[in-house]
């Protein structure tokens, strides 16, 4: 059964590849190669689109990271707390560390969305608007990705902390220090996100 699925996948991807090569060669050989213009395509995308994508990556990836971390740490806390219930309250700190990551995402999304505004100018977007759109996109992506990774890191160390704490109380603080280092990664993303969008003006259009 699985071999047939494998054949079908190979056949499908080779057909797609063939079509792509055919289209590319067709455009090139009929003298219309300049139609395949990545830069032009990117510039035709509205700066609003860039900005809003950035904001949604920022909040979306952060929340995924936080939720993922909470479930990694949470399931271990749950299991460990069966025998040693005392770890449950103490290890909520790991859950809070993960939650902080989502809060970073929310804060940055609010800061970014303050730069959005209606453009009423007849002449359309100015180059400053494009700069704002791009910087919101990449700033948001930077914040989102670093928060995602931070959430995972804190979740894994939080899980370690819970398991170690259940075995030996003294280990809790030691692993908590490592966990704090992990949670700083999210803060780095936050700072970089602020710097990247720092020089971006609000949307205004051609004045």
């Amino acid at each position: 059964m699985s071999t047939y699925v494998g054949y079908a996948r190979t056949a499908f991807s080779s057909i797609v590849l063939l079509l792509a090569i055919w289209t590319g060669l067709y455009l090139l050989l009929t003298g219309r190669g300049e139609r395949f213009n990545v830069g032009g395509y990117l510039l035709r995308i509205s700066p609003y689109m860039w900005g809003l994508y950035g904001i949604s990556f920022c909040i979306g990836l952060s929340v995924i990271g936080a939720a993922w971390g909470i479930f990694i740490a949470g399931s271990s806390i749950l299991g460990g707390a069966i025998r040693t219930p005392r770890i449950a309250t103490k290890n909520l700190i790991s859950i809070i560390f993960c939650e902080v990551v989502a809060i970073y995402g929310v804060i940055m999304a609010i800061v970014f969305s303050a730069k959005l505004g209606a453009v009423n100018s007849e002449a359309g977007f100015s180059s400053s608007d494009y700069y704002t759109g791009f910087s919101l996109f990449w700033g948001g992506l930077a914040v989102g990705l670093s928060n995602l990774i931070c959430g995972l890191a804190v979740g894994v160390t939080g899980s370690n902390a819970a398991v170690a704490d259940a075995h030996d109380q003294q280990l809790f603080v030691k692993i908590l220090v490592i966990e704090i280092f992990g949670s700083v990664i999210g803060l780095f993303g936050l700072i970089v996100g602020l710097l990247v969008t720092g020089k971006a003006e609000d949307f205004a259009g051609v004045l």
Binding site: F71, I72, G74, S75, S76, I77, L78, G79, G80, A81, I82, R83, S159, A162, V163, A166, H167
Partner: peptide
């Protein structure tokens, strides 16, 4: 995750 915690 839960079972690992329990077994530990």
């Amino acid at each position: 995750g839960y079972l690992e915690g329990v077994v530990r």
